[in-house]
Design a protein around this nucleic acid. Structure first.
Length: 482
DNA sequence: ATGTGC
C-alpha cells in the first residue's frame, strides 16, 4: 500500500488526498495533474503535500500543481495557505531563490524587423546583461544603495534611471513589497547581493527573444497588447545569491524556532515559526526585502534589454513600444484575503514554484487588466514554447489564485549531464532556427528539454481545470543562458 | 536555484 493508492480522482485532472490519510493531517491534499503525470509522479512529492497538510493553521488544502516535483521540505509546484491567526511561515515553502520570477516585454516589431540582426541582438544582450554562476552586475552599489534596493525594489531601479515610471504599474506588487525591511537582512546576504544586482544567474534562468506564435483568446490578448507575429522578450531570473543567503540564514533560525514553539513537523526541512512570533516577523521582512531585490534585478535587466535593442536597431525603445506586459513572482509567500463560504479569510499563501493567477476584479491586478484577470507567464524549457495565460475565478475558489510555474524537472542536473551532449542540443536548436548563447556548456546539458516535463501538458492541465486559461503561445528565436 | 559539498 502506497500513498498514491489512497488518492481519489475527484474530476478530470484533479485528485484528492483525503485528510484521513494520517492522524496528523489538518487539511486534505489536492493535485492538479493529468493521468499520465499522476502515474509517473514520485511518492516523495505526494508525501511532501501530506507533510505540509500537517502544519499548524493550514487552510483548506495543501495543493500540488501540474508541474509538481520533490523539493526542499515543500514540493516545487506547490501552494499552501496558513491562517494569519494560528498559522506558520516556513522558508522551505518559499524556496531558496526568493522571488524567482518571469517578466515579459512586448514591442511593435515583427520578425522581418529583426531579420539579419538576430546575431547582433543576442551578442548585445549577452554582453550587456551579465550571466552565469557568480556573475556580477555592472553597477557599483554602496551600503545605502543595497539597503534602498531591498526596501524599495523596482521603485529604486526606476528612480535611478533603469526604466520608465509606468513600468511599475504592470509588476506584481508594483515591484515593491512595502513591509520589507533591509535591517532584517544579514550583512552576508547584502555582501553577496551588492555585486550581483543586474545579473541573470545560471541554471534554468534565461533571457529569450521570442515571437508570438499563436493566440488562443483574442479578447484577452488584445487587453494584454499581444498580437500574432509580435516580437517579445522574456526574462527568467530571481534574487541571486542575496535571496539564497536570506533563505539559508532564516532556515537556521527556524530550525531553533520550531523546537522552541514545540511545533510538530514531519520533516526537519519544514522548519517554521508561528506567524505572530518574532522569528516569523523577521523572516517575512527579510524575505520581502529579497523579493524587492529580485524586482530591482529584473527592472535593471529590462533597461539593458531596451538599450541593447536601441543600439542594434537604431530606434528608441519608445519608438519600438518596448512596454512591459507583466512580471510575476513564482517563489514567494504573501498575506492575502481569500473568500471562504462568504467570509474573508486572512491567510499567508506560500507559492513555491507556483504563479499567482488572480482572476477578474481583484484589486491586486493592474487596472488595465482587472476585467480579464492578471497575466500568468509560464516559461518552457530551453528551446521550447512558453505561454501566457490569464487568472480566473476558478483559481480564486480552488487554488488561492494560483497555477503552475513551468515545465518541472524530471531528471536531476547530474543525470541530465550524463544523458545529454551539449553540442547535440545546440545543433538541434539551431536546426530549428533558434540561436543559443550560453556562458557554459554544462548548463546546456543540465537544461536539456528532455530533462523537463513537457510544458505543453502543464499548461493544458491548467487550462482544462480552469485554474488559468490560455491566452497566447510564444516561441523562442534566440536564447541566452548563464 | 546557489561562492553547484561546510
Amino acid at each position: 500500500m502506497t500513498i498514491k493508492d489512497e488518492i481519489k480522482k475527484i474530476r478530470d485532472n484533479v485528485y484528492e488526498i483525503p485528510g484521513s490519510y494520517n492522524k496528523q493531517m489538518r487539511a486534505s491534499g489536492r493535485l492538479y495533474i493529468d493521468d499520465e503525470s499522476f502515474e509517473a509522479l514520485e511518492e516523495g512529492a505526494v508525501q511532501q503535500i501530506v507533510n505540509v497538510a500537517c502544519l499548524p493553521g493550514v487552510f483548506r488544502y495543501s495543493i500540488g500543481l501540474p508541474d509538481i516535483h520533490f523539493g526542499y521540505g515543500f514540493p516545487i509546484g506547490g501552494v499552501a495557505a496558513f491562517n494569519m491567526r494560528n498559522g506558520i511561515v516556513s522558508p522551505g515553502g518559499v524556496g531558496f531563490d526568493i522571488n524567482c520570477g518571469v517578466r515579459l516585454i512586448k514591442s511593435n516589431l515583427c520578425q522581418e524587423d529583426i531579420e539579419g540582426h538576430l546575431d547582433e541582438l543576442v551578442d548585445a544582450l549577452f554582453k550587456n546583461i551579465p550571466s552565469g554562476v557568480g556573475s556580477k552586475g555592472k553597477v557599483k552599489l554602496s551600503q545605502d544603495d543595497i539597503n534602498n534596493v531591498l526596501d524599495y525594489g523596482a521603485e529604486w531601479a526606476v528612480e535611478n534611471g533603469y526604466g520608465w515610471d509606468e513600468d511599475l504599474e504592470v509588476l506584481e506588487e508594483n515591484g515593491r513589497i512595502k513591509a520589507a525591511d533591509s535591517s532584517e537582512v544579514s550583512d552576508k546576504a547584502k555582501k553577496r547581493g551588492i555585486p550581483q544586482l543586474g545579473s541573470l544567474g545560471s541554471g534554468n534562468h534565461f533571457l529569450e527573444i521570442q515571437v508570438v506564435d499563436e493566440i488562443y483568446n483574442e479578447e484577452v490578448a488584445d487587453v494584454y497588447g499581444l498580437k500574432k507575429g509580435m516580437i517579445v522578450i522574456m526574462v527568467h531570473t530571481g534574487s541571486r545569491g542575496c535571496g539564497h543567503q536570506v533563505c539559508s540564514d532564516y532556515l537556521r533560525l527556524m530550525d531553533k524556532a520550531y523546537k522552541n514553539y514545540k511545533i510538530n513537523i514531519a520533516d526537519r526541512q519544514l522548519a517554521c515559526a508561528p506567524l505572530d512570533s518574532k522569528e516569523a516577523q523577521s523572516y517575512l521582512k527579510a524575505m520581502y526585502a529579497a523579493a524587492n531585490y529580485a524586482w530591482a534585478n529584473r527592472q535593471m535587466i529590462t533597461h539593458w534589454i531596451r538599450e541593447s535593442f536601441e543600439d542594434v536597431l537604431g530606434k528608441s525603445a519608445r519608438d519600438m513600444d518596448m512596454q512591459i506586459v507583466y512580471d510575476v513572482a513564482h517563489n514567494i509567500a504573501k498575506e492575502e484575503t481569500h473568500d471562504f463560504k462568504g467570509r474573508d479569510m486572512e491567510v499567508l499563501v506560500h507559492r513555491k514554484g507556483a504563479t499567482r493567477a488572480f482572476g477578474p476584479g481583484r484589486e491586486e491586478v493592474p487596472v488595465k487588466y482587472r476585467d480579464v484577470g492578471q497575466p500568468v507567464l509560464i516559461p518552457g524549457t530551453m528551446g521550447t514554447a512558453s505561454y501566457v495565460l490569464h487568472g480566473t475565478q476558478t483559481a480564486m475558489e480552488e487554488t488561492f489564485g494560483s497555477t503552475a510555474h513551468g515545465a518541472g524537472r524530471v531528471l536531476s542536473r547530474s543525470q541530465a549531464k550524463k544523458d545529454y551532449n551539449p553540442e547535440d542540443i545546440v545543433n538541434n536548436m539551431e536546426n530549428n532556427g533558434i540561436k543559443v548563447k550560453a556562458t557554459s556548456k554544462s548548463v546546456i546539458a543540465e537544461e536539456a528539454p528532455g530533462a523537463y516535463k513537457d510544458v505543453d501538458s502543464v499548461v493544458r492541465v491548467s487550462d482544462s481545470t480552469g485554474i488559468a486559461k490560455l491566452v497566447a503561445k510564444v516561441k523562442p528565436l534566440a536564447v541566452t543562458k548563464g
